[in-house]
Simulated assay, not measured.
Amino acid sequence: MEPEKILNISVDCVVFGYDITTKSLNVLVIKRFLEAEGKVLVDDYVLTGYHVYKQETLDQTATRVLKELTGLTGQYKKQFKAFGNPDRLTNEKDIIWIKNEEFNLRTITIAYYFLLKTEDVDVNKNKYQAKWFPVNNLPELGFDHKKIIEEAYEDLKIKCLSEPIIFKLLPDKFTINEAQDLYQSILGIEIDNRNFRRKLINKKYIIALDEKQVGVSKKPAQLYMFSLDLYEKMFKKNYLINI
């Protein structure tokens, strides 16, 4: 038997993914398409979201959303805001979609964001026609999902300076330049190379490895790793790095 839904409460998930090759912070969205009698009524993109089941916590719903979209579990997630304006679903295309899907026009959504690497999601085999878009170059979005993404992004900018969450977006072994590129991609600013390097390698929880890059055309760079155990032992709350 299908679980019973709470018809006016949903969870929407902003999935951030970092592409280390293009140095781009991206958002994963899915295709929303509807046609009738040969006429296209809706053709845009939306975040992935579902109604909350009555026996679920909000966190469980968010975890379910991500698993159904990507097949992944155990990723970093944060609940950051509820969106409940009465007019949040009243765009003409949204009303058409809502009538077709038969869900509540006055739906309140609890928004989460997840952090993962773009390479961990095979979009070519995704049944939802999921696609990555740069966070600063989004397609036409349905509902109030552009606003939700923008607010998630602002929260991520603040969070990445106070907690070591960027390492969820990097390989387990990374170079200082790769860490700097990621910070620059998230914050949208240029960071002084020398100053950044000095601050990062002086952190005791950034461990220098006896390894260097392989398969690169230029001089291979030193590899590092982030030690969560050391970080948690040393700090209850501390700014990871001051830009």
Results as ranks from 00 to 15, higher is better:
200 L>V: 06
171 P>G: 10
183 Y>I: 08
233 K>P: 05
194 R>G: 15
222 Q>E: 13
201 I>F: 09
195 N>P: 00
224 Y>G: 03
233 K>A: 11
173 K>A: 11
198 R>K: 14
177 N>P: 08
223 L>G: 05
218 K>I: 07
196 F>V: 02
183 Y>C: 08
225 M>E: 12
214 V>N: 04
236 K>I: 12
219 K>C: 01
171 P>K: 14
193 N>L: 15
211 E>P: 07
235 F>D: 01
222 Q>R: 14
182 L>N: 06
177 N>G: 07
179 A>Y: 03
204 K>N: 09
198 R>N: 12
215 G>M: 02
231 Y>T: 02
178 E>Y: 10
181 D>M: 11
221 A>V: 11
218 K>Y: 13
166 I>Y: 02
166 I>N: 01
204 K>D: 12
171 P>H: 10
200 L>G: 09
201 I>W: 11
191 I>V: 13
222 Q>C: 09
204 K>H: 06
203 K>I: 00
223 L>C: 07
216 V>H: 09
220 P>T: 06
219 K>G: 00
186 I>P: 01
221 A>W: 10
207 I>E: 05
209 L>A: 12
167 F>Q: 01
178 E>K: 12
237 K>R: 11
191 I>H: 09
198 R>D: 03
188 G>C: 07
166 I>K: 01
212 K>M: 04
205 Y>E: 02
234 M>A: 12
178 E>D: 14
233 K>S: 14
168 K>E: 06
178 E>S: 14
232 E>P: 06
167 F>P: 00
226 F>R: 02
179 A>K: 04
191 I>S: 04
236 K>T: 09
217 S>W: 08
222 Q>F: 13
185 S>P: 07
230 L>P: 02
236 K>E: 13
183 Y>Q: 09
231 Y>C: 08
236 K>W: 08
229 D>W: 03
221 A>D: 14
210 D>E: 15
193 N>D: 15
235 F>Q: 01
169 L>Y: 03
169 L>D: 03
212 K>P: 09
194 R>H: 15
187 L>Q: 10
220 P>Q: 06
209 L>K: 10
